[in-house]
């Protein structure tokens, strides 16, 4: 099972990160960054198959592709923003982390506006 590998890599990397952080705080951040990357790359194949299944279901129900792609985009933005914010928080830079999260929220809001507009149109048309 992959979960064992992931947990093993995580624990070993944590121990190394602490070891290096005591001597050189700058390099400690690199280790946690690289570990986060490795675990994500390890999982990305599974995530890809889940997304494929979602696409097939969407085609079957024949809802148009805009909604699903917007959802995927939002999930992508949320993931990257959270990844960056977490790295900054670990390094002790709370201010930068909150700014990254703020920017992520705004970008997601911008992404969601078209859907909100279409929803409003739908509601307005329904009311006689």
């Amino acid at each position: 099972m992959e979960i064992y590998q992931i947990v093993a890599v995580g624990i070993v990397a944590t121990v190394l990160a602490i070891l290096v952080k005591n001597q050189k705080p700058e390099l400690g951040i690199y280790i946690s960054l690289v570990t986060g990357f490795i675990i994500f790359i390890f999982i990305v194949a599974k995530l890809q198959s889940v997304i494929e299944i979602l696409n097939q279901m969407a085609n079957k129900i024949s809802i148009d592709d805009i909604y699903l792609s917007v959802i995927l985009k939002i999930v992508g933005i949320a993931y990257i923003a959270e990844f960056g914010a977490q790295i900054c928080k670990d390094a002790g830079e709370g201010v930068i982390a909150s700014k990254i999260e703020f920017a992520g929220k705004v970008l997601i809001m911008v992404m969601a506006v078209p859907i909100l507009v279409s929803l409003m149109d739908l509601i307005i048309n329904m009311v006689p």
Binding site: Q5, V9, V12, A13, L16, L19, V20, Q23, K24, L27, G28, Y30, I31, V34, T35, F37, I38, I41, F42
Partner: peptide, 19 residues
């Protein structure tokens, strides 16, 4: 996957050497 894990140890080694 394996190649990347070596990178963690490489960075840790560089960190210790620099220290």
């Amino acid at each position: 996957m394996i190649m990347n894990v070596d990178l963690i140890f490489k960075i840790a080694a560089i960190g210790i050497i620099v220290a």
